[in-house]
Amino acid sequence: MTLFLSLLLNGLSLGALYALIALGFSVIFKASEVVSFMHGSLLLFGAYTTARLAADLPFGVAVLLGIGLTAGVGLLVERLLINRLRGSSVISLAILTIGVDIILVTELTRRIGSDILNMPAPWGGDVIRIGDVGITTNRAYAMLVAAVLIALFFAAFRFSDWGVAMRANAEDGETAALMGIKPGRVSALAWVVGAGLAAVAGLFLVGSPTPGVAPGIQAVALRAFPAAILGGLDSTGGALVGGLIIGLAESFASGYQDQILFLGRGFGDVVPYVVMILVLLVRPSGLFGTRELTRV
């Protein structure tokens, strides 16, 4: 029972981080019809800049700067590339983001080198215990921050002018344009939000129990991708649910790996994809999606 509760708690926390990343995917896809494969590098960029800046600046300042700079990279990519190629096929835009991803990751990997770059968070490797159930302080904060950001996101999406413009534009771009809604602005804001959320997730994903900023964490963003797809790529609610499902599935599959050894060692790493495939077999457009990926 203790193991179960602990896996549940850690799974929820991990899932909340996946949800942050997946929300970014989803909002970018809705606004600009781009499947962003560069989220891994954005995550790494956010974690890397924050860790580097924190060497000279107070941690809180470094965090805000790191998130801001990552959002800036998102904005830059949207303005310089995506916006100019508006109307190109979904495939070529997706491949474009893969290109940017490779460039960014290569450069960041070179800079990180063989160091182990630690995220100097004030809570370090502390662990919070509730009875016998333990979770690292980092993951506890992650869950809290993610919950607040997700709530803020949904409130903005539902009530703000930005949210209305975003949803109108996603439903019928031409009519939105006829109403004076600027598609470029909607898309730019989506990239800022998507990149910013990735940076926040990156910040926590490189903290305890993970051993620091290493290029490998960009693979984590790849796991948020099945989360977004199984929820339905064009559904923000789906991104949230998908993120939580993937986080929990991964946590349980790793925690109970001795019991499921017949599935092979390291099943926890592939479980996001297995879950995604199972869901897509039953519902090709994802749990809450309205469009199949093949039809976009």
Partner: peptide, 19 residues
């Protein structure tokens, strides 16, 4: 007509007044 069918009536009007 091309109204935004998934939005509420009020949100449709908001979308029209965005400028």
């Amino acid at each position: 007509r091309r109204i935004f069918s998934r939005l509420t009536v009020e949100e449709n009007l908001r979308a029209g007044g965005m400028g």
